[in-house]
Design a protein around this nucleic acid. Sequence first.
DNA 1: TTAAAGATTACCT
DNA 2: GGTAATCTTTAAA
Length: 213
Amino acid sequence: MVPYSDAPVRDVGLAALAELLAGPVVPAARGLLGCRLSTDGVTVRITEVEAYAGTAGDPASHAHRGRTPRNAVMFGPAGHAYVYFTYGMHWCVNVVTGPDGEASAVLLRAGEVVEGVEAARARRTAVRRDVDLARGPARLCAALGIDKAAYGRDLLGDGPVRLRPAAGPVPDAAIAAGPRVGVTGAHDVPWRFWIAGDPTVSDYRRHVPRSRR
DNA sequence: TTAAAGATTACCT
DNA sequence: GGTAATCTTTAAA
């Protein structure tokens, strides 16, 4: 089930990564697998992502209804961070993609903590195994300490949150695709990508609507 | 001004 | 397997 395997993923430098992110969202999402995201003392290797097409007719995207104060950064240039708060307690982080003016982004869903395990653990209680430290979009943000302070920051620059290319290329054959998680609609679009077999990839759970109070 | 839903996680039975 | 926790964003009145 990998119908979107058109663009081969290679090991790229920082400039090439920036160019990839400025292009179509699906190749950008695939290219983000294996990249490393670092904050103060903690580095995560990205193992799972989801693509959101924003204004391009994607009903699951926060930007599909047009520009609002929250999603404004998604309409800007690629390589910046779109951080949002949800369910009253969780932060999630996206990498803005596509040309300036087009609101596409890639949600970072999970990663492997490759540096600063102690620091990551200190930020999270009730974590038993290391592979669970950044297994899930809100957990990934918690492990890295990402919150609204990172909103709109340039991830490719030399700021407090830095995105860097993969140390080694992720073979195209190692990338699996499937429906996005937690999304109410658009279950027919396989825009969730992950590194096949990686233990840090989150489980697939169908979205369960919450009961009203 | 008010209300409803949400790109989730942790803890319950 | 089900649901409570918890609050921002967004749209409607």
